[in-house]
Nucleic acid binder design. Structure first.
Lengths: 135, 135
DNA sequence: TTGCGTGCAAAGGTTTTGCATGGCA
DNA sequence: TGCCATGCAAAACCTTTGCACGCAA
């Protein structure tokens, strides 16, 4: 049903190798262009990988383009914190927070999708920086 | 410093009257066009209202355009649930969940912005519908 | 009268699509 | 060979911007 093409492999490898960072479609296209992969194919593969759950998509509050990141299996079981100031992503593994999901499911009848949910706010560094500002 | 124009008032009123729903810039433009307000002005007013904190902006995971909603004061103190299936927004007021913010701040040194954070997942109706599907 | 807000049209940027070709199975 | 994936270019889409005019203060 799905062919395994050179380009698709290159794109997936690139995202996997940069698993630590958030890449825009443009970033990825830049990274694979030298190997003869077009931007159109990048978009089409991103859509496929997204459906397969192999990557995750983040949509910044401000700014233009969506970011993508390799979806490690372990990421399905925890939440993410995204700093609105420095745009860093933090992985949050914590027993207390696992209870959130079951609490909301039981008391509010809503089944949270951990891998899609991102908490926005200020990370430690940026909060301190802001405090220091002469505002 | 800021003039009070007819168009600005019309736009704000429209958003306020539809406080229960998520409106795209286009929805709003459609709603006020008959009263002689241009889409450009809608965008410019949305930006202003956003900065003033009078409305909130939601960026859907899927789909194109951003959604806006009248920001009721009470919304600053609770979280929101957004169904990825039917796109409904639920307001979540619950003591237990208020603890989330302080827990994450104390234990993970991250200051969550409630008004920006949205939990994505499946609401009751859609979850049941999916269960019923012959998948 | 001053200068911010508006409207139109055009630009800007991201993502999608049509169609012919290329390449996996 | 059959058919999905690719590439190019163009389109579609949302949002922003330049500029002249109108209107609130």
């Amino acid at each position: 049903m799905a062919y395994k093409t050179r380009q698709a492999q290159i794109i997936f490898d690139y995202i996997k190798q940069n698993a630590h960072s958030h890449l825009t479609a443009d970033d990825i296209a830049d990274g694979v262009r030298a190997q003869g992969v077009s931007k159109t194919t990048v978009y089409r593969q991103l859509e496929r990988l997204l459906n397969e759950g192999k990557i995750r998509k983040y949509i910044p509050q401000e700014g233009k383009s969506a970011c993508f990141q390799y979806a490690e299996e372990t990421c399905h079981s925890h939440f993410h914190l995204k700093c609105t100031e420095c745009n860093c992503l933090f992985h949050l593994e914590c027993e207390y927070l696992d209870e959130i999901k079951s609490h909301i499911l039981e008391h509010h009848l809503f089944d949270i999708d951990n891998s899609r949910t991102v908490f926005y706010g200020l990370c430690r560094n940026c909060a301190e920086k802001k405090k220091g500002d002469t505002k």
